[in-house]
């Protein structure tokens, strides 16, 4: 590490850290939302077979849970560099060229994120105009799930923009290692650590 990070880059780094933290919280909520979804569907199956009733809205609600789960975890997945890139070639290029491609990739992804987020908000507005409800027994106003969903898309957009900002600044200031660390493909070490953590959790002594 060279001493003295220039001020604009420091601000951008702080911004990325802050947004990443928010994104992580949203991703955990998205994950717990899937656990809840499993509970809901299991309950519906049991109720239908043993208790003789059905919520008659499970199909719709779990669909909304999926949509919101995907959207709310997009930003965190980006921060963790887990969105899929075909980087076989990129990883063989010299650092000087590689960092430009990293920034290009995140710029194009941010561009696509703008479109997704815009599309998401546009359907929320349209549902508001129609005062649309779903056809389930609960007649849920579509604005509700679609609004939550679109918020996740917006978070993804913000995440991609702060990453773009930080990496572009770092590139211009010649901090190539930092760009690679920020956007480069996850190293073997990262992935191994993760897998081994999971196995370690399984091998842990049983909790007292």
């Amino acid at each position: 590490m060279r001493g003295g990070v220039p001020a604009p880059l420091r601000v951008a780094q702080g911004l990325t850290r802050w947004v990443s933290r928010l994104a992580a919280v949203m991703a955990y909520l998205a994950g717990w939302n899937y656990i809840l979804c499993a509970v809901l569907i299991t309950f519906d199956v049991v109720a239908r077979n043993l208790l003789g009733f059905s919520t008659a809205a499970t199909v719709e609600i779990s669909g909304y849970m999926l949509a919101c789960g995907i959207a709310w975890a997009l930003a965190h997945t980006l921060a963790r560099r887990a969105h899929i890139r075909v980087d076989v070639l990129v990883n063989r290029m010299p650092l000087r060229l590689r960092v430009w491609l990293h920034v290009l990739a995140v710029a194009l992804l941010a561009g696509f994120a703008v479109f997704i987020a815009w599309g998401g908000w546009q359907i929320v507005e349209e549902s508001a105009l129609f005062d649309a409800h779903d056809n389930s027994a609960l007649r849920i106003p579509l604005m509700l799930p679609q609004g939550i969903w679109a918020f996740g898309l917006l978070a993804f957009l913000v995440m991609s923009l702060v990453l773009l900002l930080e990496s572009a600044l770092a590139l211009l200031l010649g901090e190539l290692e930092e760009v690679d660390a920020l956007l480069g493909s996850r190293s073997v070490d990262d992935e191994t650590r993760e897998a081994l953590e999971a196995v370690a959790m399984a091998r842990e002594e049983q909790p007292a």
């Binding site: 239908r48 059905s54 008659a56 499970t58 199909v59 719709e60 389930s136 027994a137």
Partner: peptide, 12 residues
């Protein structure tokens, strides 16, 4: 369906 005493099921 509910009124005639049957159980409506929602399946895609």
């Amino acid at each position: 369906i509910t009124t005639i005493g049957a159980q409506p099921v929602s399946i895609g």
